[in-house]
């Protein structure tokens, strides 16, 4: 529960915290962008939005609030000008700042973030492009191994039965008598032709499993990608 946790304490006593945030916010409005830890950025963002609201309203009291908070008078006036000229003309009434997460600090591994003043409006609609780009890459990646695997397995399976039949065909004529030479010759011819016929379907068999396997594995991918599209559409809705 987030109850009764309205203050971002950032592990500091109130006076320390207030001083730190005043300094941070002064440099923030001065440079319009500050890189700090994520916790400090989040704490400062809240106050920044409040100061911007003061700047937008622009009453004397609100101007004085800004001047009293920020350490530098120039920066305070810059903020008031920005509020009046830029932020007051927006359709939205908040969200003039953004915190982007930006990796981890080397020394202590603290998560860093960029606190930015959004002086230009961000256009909306981005979701469509990302997922359509991702789909073809996935299909290509899985296609190539799918073609290779059936080729390797199919010949290995078919060579073994061929070898067995050959050995049987060779053994049987030797045991039979010489009078049956013609028969053996015929059998040999038959065996050779059988070998040829076996080889031919072998080749065709080598070819056939490739597209079958490829198609068979492409189809579920497509359905998956369609599923992703469906999900993305749901997200849009």
């Amino acid at each position: 529960m987030r109850h009764r946790k309205t203050v971002h304490k950032i592990n500091k006593q109130p006076a320390h915290r207030r001083a730190l945030l005043r300094n941070l916010l002064t440099s923030f409005f001065k440079h319009e962008r500050v890189i700090t830890t994520r916790a400090k950025a989040k704490a400062a963002q809240r106050i920044a939005e409040r100061l911007i609201r003061y700047a937008i309203s622009g009453t004397l009291a609100d101007k004085r609030r800004i001047i009293s908070y920020l350490r530098e008078r120039d920066v305070a006036h810059k903020l008031i000008r920005l509020g009046q000229e830029n932020f007051a003309k927006r359709e939205h009434r908040g969200g003039f700042t953004a915190v982007y997460k930006y990796g981890f600090r080397k020394g202590d591994g603290a998560e860093m973030a960029i606190l930015t003043l959004l002086t230009e409006e961000i256009p909306k609609d981005k979701k469509k492009r990302k997922k359509k780009v991702a789909e073809p890459e996935v299909i290509e990646a899985v296609e190539t191994p799918a073609e290779e695997t059936p080729v390797e397995t199919a010949p290995a399976e078919e060579t073994t039965p061929e070898a067995t039949t050959e050995s049987v065909a060779e053994e049987t004529p030797e045991t039979e008598t010489v009078s049956e030479e013609t028969a053996t010759a015929e059998q040999k011819v038959e065996a050779e032709s059988a070998e040829e016929t076996e080889e031919k379907p072998e080749q065709s068999a080598e070819e056939t499993p490739e597209p079958e396997g490829a198609e068979g594995e492409q189809a579920p991918e497509k359905s998956q990608s369609e599923g992703e599209e469906g999900e993305s559409e749901k997200e849009k809705e």
Partner: peptide
């Protein structure tokens, strides 16, 4: 890159450059 972060290689986030990066 890590998700939900500014890209450390090109400094883009959400399709837009975060210029200082």
């Amino acid at each position: 890159m890590l998700p939900h972060r500014v890209c450390p290689h090109c400094g883009y986030y959400n399709g837009r450059p975060i210029i200082s990066v």
